[in-house]
């Protein structure tokens, strides 16, 4: 089995990620320790709230460097919601926040429709709907999935980021997490430091 850590940095509903993984038979561990984040088979960066305080929370614990390091080492890493927005180079939120730079691009305020954008929406390619709750969205050349013109999913090297909440997306979310875990298991099985590819959606 793989060992999974969920970054605990004072920004987010860590618990629902843990509960969702438990339903898949995985006892994930929450951690504030950089070394644990670097070493795990899969590290998950969840997050809700504002980019500024979240980035401060990561830095105070040294988790920013830990996440960058593990992605450089080709270790599977999953960012959820704010976890995707923190991964790009810059966010416009809170008068501008420098991101982790794991992905190229920036996060900016959504300008269409009702904001916050809250609810279930289809992610393409594919036809499953996932749950979104966000006011900012990323623009990145690493985008691999879209929802109503908004980047829903981005992947580069061993990092995958999703704007939706798989842990809150019912059966579709469960399938996403299952497939994502399967890919990490496969990566671990023939791990020659080869970056994991694909995201978790078919």
């Amino acid at each position: 089995m793989i060992d999974v850590v969920v970054c605990e940095y004072g920004a987010g509903n860590v618990r629902s990620v843990i509960v969702a993984l438990r339903r898949l038979g995985i006892e994930a561990k929450t951690t504030e320790e950089g070394d644990e984040v670097i070493g795990a088979d899969l590290a998950i960066l969840p997050g809700v709230g504002a980019a500024g305080s979240a980035m401060r929370g990561l830095k105070e614990r040294g988790l920013d460097e830990a996440l960058i390091k593990r992605v450089e080492g080709g270790r599977p890493t999953l960012g959820i919601c704010l976890g995707l927005q923190l991964a790009v180079e810059h966010s416009d939120e809170d008068e501008g926040v420098t991101g982790l730079g794991i992905l190229p691009g920036r996060a900016s305020l959504i300008r269409e429709g009702r904001v916050p954008r809250i609810g279930w929406a289809r992610v393409e390619p594919g036809d499953e709907a996932f749950y979104f709750a966000h006011s900012y969205a990323v623009e990145t050349s690493a985008a691999v999935g879209y929802s109503e013109g908004i980047v829903a999913e981005a992947a580069l090297g061993s990092f995958v980021g999703v704007q939706f909440h798989p842990e809150k997306s019912g059966n579709a979310g469960r399938r996403f997490l299952e497939r994502h875990i399967d890919r990490v298991v496969a990566w671990k099985a023939d791990s020659n430091g080869v970056p994991v590819s694909g995201t978790g959606r078919p």
Binding site: V48, G49, A50, L82, P116, I118, A133, H134, S135
Partner: peptide, 8 residues
């Protein structure tokens, strides 16, 4: 909203 984000 400052603490949790408006979406919460």
């Amino acid at each position: 909203a400052g603490l949790l984000g408006s979406q919460a």
